[in-house]
Design a protein around this nucleic acid. Structure first.
Lengths: 224, 224
DNA sequence: CGTTAGCTTGAGGACTATCAATGTCAGTGG
DNA sequence: CCACTGACATTGATAGTCCTCAAGCTAACG
């Protein structure tokens, strides 16, 4: 979301507009730094505004029975959390920090006032949602038709793409196996068995919580 | 999407703005009436604009191997098809008419010019996408964690809600079993068996291609 | 009357969730 | 230093769900 040709309004979606986001934080006294594991907002709570993630990593997830959850998506720098178009009042998902993170909080009121007079902002938000929607639709068909191994391979590629890798193929995010399973739509045990298999084939390697992708093309083949 | 308090710009999303949509049809010579089964646009083709559905019913679907598809969503009157935020040039999904349908075609060019000067329009589109996104996310967790029976029950309730019912509980849409299976993320045979089971329990009844929901609450229970 | 397409049913087996048992490891408090 | 604890990792056994394949069946249609 780092759009290069900013026409200023401000657009709020390019690097040069970041100071303006940050300035908002001093106006409202919302907590905007989150420790690893901390809840940013929670399913069922009233929506008070949206968060623009400045640094860190976040999971957006939804409960499903006791002790069961789906991770809807991961978010990283410059992504938007928790805004649903001013219609609803209650969060339908939760957001939890995966790393220590910082954000800007933009109150509903600010949006209510800004959107009608700031076409850039509404267009950018529209594009943002359109993009997210497209990803969500793609993920829907994958969840429906891929087998578990394919979904896990896909998850690993998604993480690699979203959080980056170092020169050795290490995914730049410490993430629990349980979270990977929850995003892939499977259980911890099944994920484990498939990790074992992928490791024995030399496709991935694990170093504690960090995952090393050794044969990206093999993963791509598995993910079809 | 029939928003009551239209501030006119035109907003394009309320009944009183429909004439303006219709007027667009006379300007561009795009085909805007579609017969049952006709393709509206197809995966891989260039995006030329978006469609605002005036009457009828449409499925939005995505290919998956040969002879396999996922239905992403159903659309009916006053819904928008095929617009993805001006970023991409290629459709990632197809749309096919389930009933004879009429639409308005809005060329990209029109949107490119209108959005920056018509805050109402961009805000409405943004809200539209935000709403769709929320539905897509909910469907994602369902596809991941519900069993087939639950997903089918959920599909039936979705269809009932979207296309309405007559006084006897008949879903107001003639839809093939294959399509229901594709939306539920399962196969024709499995769908058939579950239909047999639901029928024997008196929860649903089939009259050719029309489906009668007889015990909505039972379905809700199955869909959790 | 043969052909084709879609409907219906059965059998078999692949895949994956679940449950349970055990292993590992870091931290805690005695 | 060591036993204890809780969280997480690892593995096996089992069973259930659901897909696939294949075959019979019906009905429409030239």
């Amino acid at each position: 979301m780092n759009i290069s040709n900013c026409n200023r309004n401000p657009c709020f979606f390019c690097t040069s507009c970041l100071p303006e986001w940050r300035a908002l934080n001093s106006i409202n006294k919302k907590n905007c730094t989150f420790k690893r594991g901390e809840t940013i907002f929670k399913e069922g709570n009233p929506i008070e505004g949206m968060y623009f993630l400045l640094t860190g990593a976040v999971k957006v997830h939804q409960h499903w029975e006791q002790s069961r959850e789906t991770i809807i998506r991961f978010a990283t720098e410059k992504e938007v959390l928790g805004f649903r178009g001013m219609g609803d009042n209650i969060y339908t998902v939760s957001a939890t920090a995966l790393e220590n993170s910082t954000a800007c909080f933009i109150p509903n009121e600010f949006l209510r006032v800004s959107l009608p007079v700031n076409p850039n902002l509404s267009i950018r938000l529209m594009q943002l949602y359109a993009g997210e929607l497209q990803l969500a639709e793609k993920r829907m068909s994958k969840l429906a038709h891929q087998d578990v191994k394919g979904r896990i391979a896909d998850t690993l590629l998604t993480l690699l793409h979203k959080f980056g890798e170092d020169e050795n193929g290490r995914i730049q995010l410490r993430i629990s196996r349980q979270d990977i399973a929850s995003y892939s739509g499977t259980t911890y045990e099944t994920l484990f068995r498939i990790f074992t298999e992928l490791t024995s084939k030399g496709i991935i390697k694990t170093e504690g919580k960090t995952i090393v992708i050794r044969k990206k093309n093999e993963l791509r083949k598995i993910a079809e």
